[in-house]
């Protein structure tokens, strides 16, 4: 074939169009095919019937409740933390910054192992809790702690940068107009950062829902107690293929809803001054 440079303009353009199309198609197929394959391996009847399996129901329920609790903790602790962190300088701030992001690159299995070393029955801190009759590892609490550890960076990073960039003259103006700090936060700061905070929260929820590595290391795999949906998929693959398939499809659907929510929320950006 002749080099593109000496092809007539008409052919050159159609060639670059088809190359671009091919590239987009290749990427789309690579990402979509595995997901589509899930739906092709089952039938609607099989899907609906295994939905009512106790294993599926308990995994779904456990996953949803723990993820909601994890998210609530991350929001309630992470929001005030992000404000204080973003607006003050203190010694060691760089280290704290790095620590916030660490779980993003730390392998989840390592995170789970580390949590076990600290809070396990013989762990540095865990032994004292154990003496008080409060076991942490291999309980539902451990599931939540693992999720918070692994999923919090998605919200924290977002909140931190939102509050760093937030123009404080809005808040100052509200204060001079007579608003208390709480009123200022509720009517000015929160509405102006809500879009970003919600998208961070949704990503955190999604990550918590999909948590596998840290959970299996630190919380184990007890049906109804610590067996979340990703863990049930793993078990299902070995014992009951259809159950694994059903839970996988559920997780795909939830992931899609999450991504669509993020898209919709971030599109409704408020006009900025």
């Amino acid at each position: 074939m002749r080099p593109a440079g000496i092809l007539p303009e008409k052919y050159r353009r159609s060639l670059s169009y088809s190359l671009a199309g091919l590239l987009i198609l290749a990427v789309t197929l690579y990402l979509a095919l595995p997901v589509v394959a899930l739906f092709f391996r089952t039938t609607p009847e099989l899907f609906w019937s295994s939905l009512s399996d106790p294993l599926v129901i308990s995994a779904l329920w456990l996953s949803l409740t723990t993820s909601v609790i994890s998210l609530a903790v991350v929001i309630l602790v992470g929001t005030p933390f992000a404000i204080v962190h973003a607006r003050s300088s203190y010694p060691g701030k760089v280290i704290v910054d790095t620590l916030i992001d660490l779980p993003l690159v730390l392998p989840p299995a390592v995170a789970g192992f580390a949590l076990l070393v600290l809070y396990g029955r013989m762990g540095l801190v865990g032994r004292y809790f154990n003496m008080l009759g409060i076991p942490i590892a291999f309980t539902t609490l451990a599931v939540i702690m693992a999720q918070i550890f692994v999923a919090s960076p998605f919200y924290m990073r977002q909140a931190k940068s939102l509050f760093e960039q937030f123009d404080q003259s809005y808040e100052y103006t509200a204060r001079t107009l007579g608003a208390s700090p709480l009123r200022t936060f509720m009517t000015i700061t929160l509405p102006l950062t809500a879009t970003g905070l919600v998208s961070g929260a949704v990503m955190t929820f999604g990550r918590a829902l999909g948590e596998f590595g840290a959970t299996i290391m630190f919380a184990g795999n007890l049906p109804g107690v610590t067996q979340t949906m990703p863990l049930a998929v793993y078990v299902g693959m070995e014992s009951n293929f259809n159950l694994g398939l059903t839970i996988s499809i559920l997780l795909v659907i939830i992931s899609f809803i999450i991504m669509i929510t993020v898209r919709l929320v971030t599109r409704k950006e408020v006009p900025h001054a």
Binding site: D167, S169, Y170, Y172, T173, A174, I188, P191, L192, V270, P271, H272, A273
Partner: peptide
């Protein structure tokens, strides 16, 4: 009145 007017955009 702040420099950028700081009207609440929302």
């Amino acid at each position: 009145v702040f420099q950028n007017a700081a009207v609440f955009p929302h």
